[in-house]
Design a protein around this nucleic acid. Structure first.
Lengths: 107, 107
DNA sequence: CCCCTTGTTCGATAATCTTCGATGTGTTCG
DNA sequence: CGAACACATCGAAGATTATCGAACAAGGGG
């Protein structure tokens, strides 16, 4: 059998539209997603800086968790840091055109 | 001169992405938008029923206001009722592909 | 082994959102 | 005019979310 979930990231088929939209419906999280799209991948510290977010580390961690639990980004452990990536392909399969529309939209 | 705003609906150029996404990031409001896309246009009472929303009239009015202030739908007065329509064209110009992606997405 | 860095989790507080019933406003109809 | 209808708005209660600092866990380097 194929294990499709790790308990941290929802399975691609479980992504719920309202939840994805709600996660993206916050300026800070939207900036985070845009920055991650530019960077391709990044650790948390750099991503927060690149997104221009002045908030505590714990608050950013919270927002990152919201994005992760909505299925928008993926985190993998690399040494002492977590490398974040957008789940572009899976989002495209489930909600065709959605992420691109968001990333291409004016600020 | 051209009057572009009526105080109730944001101007097309003022639509903010995060606000639009936040407005859509709620199951009830999402169902409302989907139903309105099917109906083309509708008064509030019928739209609420068609969207399958069991909530008080005042609560629906509140959600309708959130959608309107985000620039997603338009209300015009017709006699004693308000006729609601999606601002499809304006959304398409400002955020190409976004509304279609939402409407075409699986529930 | 200590310590610094990275990031999460917890507990508290503040802000925002949801929901309702009551009330108000304008419309239509008898 | 008066009742019935369609919605909006107000004010309050409850739920959810945002935010922070403190405490915690895991890695990497001296």
């Amino acid at each position: 059998m194929t294990v499709t979930t790790d308990g941290l990231h929802p399975d691609a088929s479980d992504l719920r539209l309202a939840r994805v939209l709600a996660a993206l419906g916050d300026e800070g999280r939207l900036a985070t997603v845009r920055a991650l799209a530019r960077l391709g991948e990044s650790d948390c510290t750099r991503l927060q800086a690149d997104a221009g977010l002045e908030m505590s580390r714990s608050t950013f961690s919270h927002h990152q968790k919201v994005l992760r639990e909505a299925g928008i980004l993926h985190a993998r452990v690399q040494g002492s840091q977590r490398i974040l990536t957008l789940r572009k392909a899976e989002l495209q399969v489930r909600f065709p055109g959605l992420l691109n529309a968001v990333l291409d939209a004016p600020a």
